[in-house]
Amino acid sequence: MVGPDFSERLANLLSADGGRLAEAWVERVSTSLRNRMSTVELDRELRELYDALVEALRRGAGGVHDENFSEVRALLTEISRNRARQGFTPGETAVSVFALKEVLEPGLTSGSSADIGAYLRLSRLLDEFGLFTMEAYSQTREEIISAQAEQLLELSTPVVKIWDGVIAVPLVGTLDSARTQVVMEKLLQALVDTGSEQAIIDITGVPAVDTQVAQHLLKTIVAARLMGAECTVSGIRPQIAQTIVALGIEFGDIVTKASLADALRHALGRTGASVVAKAGERR
């Protein structure tokens, strides 16, 4: 924490030669980023941050989570996000913040011991800022990742009607509980919407089946059965059949077929339709 007198002293130190210090800071950062960013932009960003910092110190701000630092925090978050978007590593962003310490160092030789004390406090504060940019960076990443996961969830679970009274869900990718939940809900809703009594769950695109995935599948099938529909599992590849048996998973009386075509034929048979090749029209 920076005491009120310290923050006052710091504010004076920083504002006394503000223009030159900020300029030195910009120069140093732009060298460390090897001119991958335009100096004009960098100058605007850092000067804004510098002014906000001085202003906050003048108002007697303590730690980085202090109320008076809200503007500084907002600026740091923005910088962190922009840099992340431009492809800079979070380390580089943090180093940009730390660079201000180096800029202040030369001024210390002539300063009093109180100034050195203030500098040490500021250094601690800047450490916190650096960590803050790191946090902001990872938070942004988290947000992007969770948004993408959500999109993926919606993309990858279509329920299609393939015949009157027959719907199919082609599953692609790894199944986890969240996805299975979505699949389950969509499938059951589709049963109601289309009035279908037959559902085919095609797992051709599922790379691996473990006990958990099988458990999810079984749950879905039982739920469909409770609603009065029958499920067929299709697209079971040889290795997966072996795994399922090796794991000792019992599919019980659930109909399983090797291919979607077989499952469709079975489902059509259950709905009372049959596929007949016309004589003379065989290809």
Binding site: M184, E185, L188, Q189, L191, V192, K219, V222, A223, A224, L226, M227, G228
Partner: peptide, 11 residues
């Protein structure tokens, strides 16, 4: 039976 009810019963 509604989907939500079916899911509940299975759970």
């Amino acid at each position: 039976m509604r989907p939500a009810v079916a899911i509940t019963l299975v759970e």
